[in-house]
Each structure stands twice: as structure tokens, then as C-alpha cells.
Design a protein around this nucleic acid. Structure first.
Lengths: 209, 209
DNA sequence: TTAAAAAAATGACCAATAGTCAGTTTAATT
DNA sequence: AATTAAACTGACTATTGGTCATTTTTTTAA
């Protein structure tokens, strides 16, 4: 009988409905801060029901953040073309990252919040929210080290963490451009370009010819 | 008469007492999350009194963060020796930054929180919490560009923001080392070293001889 | 020294909101 | 049709940030 399956689907759907409502509420430009009551009203369920689908508010936010990581991965995935050196693919990843942050600033902000605060994910351990994205970056890096377009005197795992952390830091500043960047009167695009140039030069192999 | 002055001093002292108590409470390893009632109990004042000295909880936290920035500046200031190239001074700043984060992880974390969230500082505008530290970095950079040890095809203001953002990102990862870094099984010190090597190479002038 | 005024401090109270749970409604099973 | 199970409800509790009328302490002025 397919009843169990149908119920499972319906349950999953509810979860998503709640998630969508939460996204709207928590990312609402006006309110800035949404409550669980707001979410309940938006999705036309009682507050109690929310807690049948998510352990608590943080879990709900975490789910939104996870969805954001999924979106980021889509941006990444679309960019890998054959015939490009690892180095150039890396550069493309950077572009996609910037695009993602511009398209989904609120999601990115939320992701950062969890990155910063750490969070015991609902299902078990202290997962690494960004892990899938990091794995992707790692692949490209290894490719670049293999084809000689990226230095290999620093291990790939180290470079992954380094580049990732730097990128996160830069994106953070971009989010705060009104403060950071206007403060110094520089153009956002130039800062990003500058970052690229420094990094690209920084990861060159010993002798480039 | 010196009564007004004495009162002013006493008022300042109260502020600091509250600040110290708040630091203890909010950074307490056990509790993780402190309340204003906790702070009040710790300084042996009523809660209402706290609000005579700080507009709200956020202001109190902000004051702690500001204190943290002051500490960071002390670390920086101690490091400027004559006879070093801007490039080398920059490297020293990096070392001090790492030391600071290791010595005052909680303060740094709090600073990051405000960097990320943005905050209308008590006295007026949307100040840049880290501005003093940035100004310091900028000086060193300009020195390096002048003495030819740092590339000048990217403006100093741009490099300031770039390096600063990258550094922040890296420090963030360091704070989360149990997750990020253990995850990939790399050594923290090596990651930092790697970061230096990449950046130092990245900011080299066109031709180094 | 003392009465009036000012400053500092108090803590009971309010409001907002995350989270709970006994009870109700709806759906599935027999 | 009766029983069981699943989904849902919303009034309620607990926590905590913030307020304010009142009290205590200090200063000022006569």
C-alpha cells in the first residue's frame, strides 16, 4: 500500500511549506526579526505544529542556511567546463561565489552566522555546514596542482582552508560594503578584483612560464 | 570645587565595574549565555542601575568589543620597530593578530559578531568598530609601498580592505579550528604559515630583486 | 545643623517570545 | 461503526530585556 509513502511525501511537503514561510518571515525587509508566531501565521498552522517539524527556531534557521548552501553549490556546479586549467576554474568559482552573495545576501549572512557560532545540527554531530562547497573547491585545487597551474608546496587541504577563509572574509566585507567600503571610498568591484590578483599571484607555482 | 570631577570619576568607575562584571558573565565558560540579571548580581547592583550606565544589553556588549579592539591595538603598537620594511612590519602585524586571537578568543568573537551584524554605536553614527586597527594597517601598507616592498598597482585603501578581510576570515576559521581544521586534519600553524606565504607572494611588486 | 533639591539606586513590574502539552480534530485501520 | 493512530491546536509557562514610580544617598543652601 502506498499510504505510508504518500504520508511521507505530505510530511516532507509540510516541512517545506514551513521552511518557505520561515524564509519569508525571517528575511523580510521590514520586520528584520521574525517570531515563530509570525511564521505560524504565515503558513497558516498553529505554533505547536511548527515544533512537530523542527526541534526549535534554530533548527529552522539552520535548515534555511542549508538550503542556501545548496544554492551555492548550484552556482558552483554550473561553472566547471572542460579544457580550463584548475587555476582558471578557481577563478570562475570566485566569480560564482560573488554572484551568489549578491543574489542571496540574506542566505549568505545566515550561513555566516552558523559558521561563526557553530551549531549542533539537528541530525547528529557538529556538521560542517559548508562542507560540500569546500569539497568542490578542493577538487578544483587538486586539478590545478596536477596541471601545474597552482603551487603545490602547500598541501591542497591547507590551501582549501586558506582560500575559503579568505573568501568568506571578503564576502563578509562585501555584505557590509556600506560601512567598510564606502568608509574608505573604494569601489567594490575593484576590491574584489584586487583580491583576485593578489590570490592568483600568491598561488602561482614557483616559476611560471 | 572638585566635586563634579570626583563624581565624574566615580561614574566612570561604576561603568567599568559593570563592564568587568559583564565580561565575566558573558564570557563565562559554563553558562555560555549570561543575562542582565546575572550581571547585576555579579556587580552587586540592581538591574535598573545597569541601565543608567548602558542603554541596553547590546551597548554593554559593544563596550566589551571596543575594549577588545583596544587590546588588539596594544598588540599592534608594540611591534613597530624602525629599520623594518613595510613588508616585514606587515608580517609582524599578522603575527600579533594571531596572538591576540589566541589570547582573547572571546573578545575577538564578539568583535566579529558586531562586524557581521552591524551596530548603531551608542554615541551617534554607525561607527566602524575596527577602524583604529585598520588605520594602523594602512600606515604600514603605505610605508611598504613607498619603500618598494609592497606592490602599488592596487591602491592602499583597496589592499587594506582586502588584507583585513582575508585576515578576519582566517581568524574566524582559527576560532573554529575544532570544526574546520580538524576536519581536514591539517595543522593550524601550517595553515597560518601558508596564508602568509600566499599573501606575501601576492603583494610582491612586479619585479623583485 | 537642617531642610530642600538633586543624583543615584532600587526592584516590582511589563512585554515579548521561545517552547510545551493536555486536549481536539482528522485520518487510517479493523 | 468502533478503535487506534497521527496530526494539529492554542492556551499556558518560563525566561529575560527593559521600564519607572519610589526610596535612599549625597549635595547644596540657608
Amino acid at each position: 500500500m502506498g499510504i505510508a509513502e504518500r504520508k511521507e511525501r505530505e510530511k516532507q511537503r509540510r516541512r517545506e511549506e514551513i521552511l518557505d514561510a520561515a524564509e519569508e518571515i525571517f528575511f523580510d525587509a521590514n520586520g528584520e526579526k521574525g517570531t515563530m508566531d509570525d511564521v505560524a501565521e504565515r503558513v497558516e498552522l498553529s505554533k505547536g505544529t511548527l515544533y512537530l517539524y523542527y526541534r526549535n527556531k534554530n533548527d529552522l534557521l539552520y535548515a534555511i542556511a542549508e538550503k542556501g548552501v545548496g544554492l551555492l553549490l548550484e552556482y558552483f556546479a554550473g561553472v566547471i567546463r572542460e579544457g580550463l586549467s584548475g587555476r582558471n576554474q578557481l577563478s570562475d568559482i570566485g566569480d560564482e561565489f560573488v554572484r551568489f552573495v549578491e543574489d542571496y545576501p540574506k542566505h549568505f549572512e545566515l550561513i555566516l552566522r552558523f559558521e561563526l557560532a557553530g551549531y549542533q545540527s539537528p541530525d547528529g554531530g557538529d556538521r560542517l555546514l559548508m562542507e560540500p562547497a569546500l569539497a568542490f573547491l578542493r577538487e578544483v585545487l587538486v586539478r590545478g596542482q596536477k596541471d601545474g597551474s597552482i603551487r603545490d608546496d602547500i598541501t591542497e587541504d591547507e590551501i582549501v582552508i586558506i582560500l575559503w577563509s579568505q573568501m568568506i572574509g571578503l564576502m563578509q566585507s562585501i555584505l557590509r560594503k556600506e560601512r567598510y567600503i564606502d568608509f574608505y571610498g573604494v569601489e567594490l568591484k575593484r576590491v574584489i578584483k584586487g583580491h583576485y590578483r593578489i590570490i592568483m599571484k600568491g598561488i602561482e607555482p614557483k616559476s611560471t612560464e
